[in-house]
Amino acid sequence: MTRYSLNIDGNIQLSDYTNISDYIQFLKENDEIIINIKSRNKVDSDTVYTMLKNSNFNVIYEGGREHETYCIKAYRN
Rank of each mutant, 00 (worst) to 15 (best):
I33T: 05
L27Q: 02
Y4G: 07
D9S: 09
H67T: 01
R65I: 07
I33G: 07
L14F: 13
T47Y: 03
S45D: 04
K53I: 07
E62V: 02
Y70A: 01
I37G: 01
N19L: 15
E29G: 03
N36C: 02
Q25M: 15
T50K: 09
D22Y: 04
Y61W: 13
I37Y: 01
A74F: 04
D46A: 07
E68C: 08
F26M: 14
G64C: 04
S21I: 01
K73R: 14
I35T: 04
H67R: 06
V43Q: 02
N7H: 08
G63H: 05
F26A: 13
K42V: 03
Y61A: 13
L14H: 10
R76H: 10
G10L: 12
T50Y: 03
E32N: 14
S55D: 10
N30I: 06
S21D: 10
Y49M: 07
D31I: 15
E32W: 15
I24F: 12
D44W: 00
K28I: 08
Y49E: 11
N56P: 01
I72L: 12
V59C: 11
L27N: 00
Y61G: 07
A74D: 02
Y70W: 12
S15V: 09
N77D: 09
N54M: 14
S39T: 03
K38G: 00
S45Q: 08
D46I: 03
K73T: 14
Y23A: 14
K42Y: 09
I12Q: 03
T50S: 11
Y17V: 05
